[in-house]
Computed example of a mutant assay.
Amino acid sequence: MSPEQSSAPDGAAPDPSAAPDAGAPAALPAQPTAADAARAEPDETPTDGASDDATTAAGSTAGEVEIESVVDPTTVRRAPRYRAFFTVGVVLGTVLGLGLGGAWLQSPAAAPVFKPGVYFTVIVVTCAALGAGVAGVWAVVADRRSLRGRR
């Protein structure tokens, strides 16, 4: 901290009695360490062996509620993960496109084509897009099925 900076927060006047002498070097206040905190004794200890009502073993306050006491796992809706559905759809569509494109390249129908690589790429990309579309429909159907018993 430079001499121009104040240790007092904005809007608060510094305590003039705590100012160091002009000739003496300024000493930093002693900061407690982790070891000091570990050695510190608690102010109040429960006499009956029970923990304090305001805090739990996890350190949460009394205003917080444990999820297990509020949520019944038998009524939790199991919604699908759309990203996983789309990823599987794209991967399976790409694999199918590679198979179809490779089979098309080996067929006599690909012989008169000027650039068969372009057609192969179009087949692979189209199959990947169709796979993503089918997976999206499948995810929506799965989502609707998860809502069926909740209404």
Rank of each mutant, 00 (worst) to 15 (best):
S2L: 10
P3F: 12
E4Q: 14
S6D: 15
S7T: 13
A8I: 03
A8G: 07
D10Y: 03
A12Y: 04
A13G: 06
A13C: 06
P14F: 03
P14T: 08
D15N: 15
P16S: 13
S17I: 07
P25C: 11
A27L: 10
L28Q: 13
L28A: 15
L28R: 13
P29L: 10
P29T: 11
P29N: 13
P29Y: 08
P29D: 14
Q31C: 08
Q31A: 14
Q31R: 13
T33H: 04
A34S: 13
A37I: 06
R39H: 08
A40K: 08
P42L: 05
D43R: 09
D43F: 07
P46C: 10
P46Q: 12
G49A: 04
S51C: 05
S51M: 12
D52L: 05
D52A: 08
A54T: 08
T55S: 06
G59F: 01
S60N: 15
T61V: 06
A62N: 06
G63V: 12
E66L: 14
S69D: 15
V70F: 10
D72K: 09
D72Y: 07
D72H: 11
P73G: 09
T75A: 10
V76S: 11
R78Y: 10
A79M: 09
P80E: 04
R81E: 06
R81L: 04
R81N: 14
Y82I: 10
R83D: 15
F85D: 02
F86C: 09
T87I: 01
T87S: 11
T87P: 00
G89P: 00
V90S: 02
V91K: 02
G93M: 00
T94C: 12
V95A: 15
G97Y: 02
G97D: 05
G97F: 01
G97I: 01
L98P: 03
L100V: 14
G101Y: 00
G101W: 00
G101V: 00
G101K: 00
G102H: 03
A103G: 14
L105T: 07
L105S: 14
S107H: 06
A109K: 11
A110E: 08
A111N: 10
P112N: 06
P112I: 02
V113I: 04
K115G: 10
K115W: 07
K115A: 14
P116H: 03
G117Y: 08
V118I: 15
Y119K: 08
F120Q: 13
T121Q: 08
T121N: 12
V124L: 06
C127P: 06
C127K: 01
A129F: 05
A129T: 10
G131F: 00
A132H: 00
G133V: 02
V134K: 09
A135G: 01
A135W: 00
A135L: 01
G136K: 01
V137Q: 12
W138I: 01
W138R: 04
V141A: 11
A142W: 00
A142I: 00
D143I: 00
R145V: 05
L147V: 06
L147R: 13
R148D: 07
G149K: 14
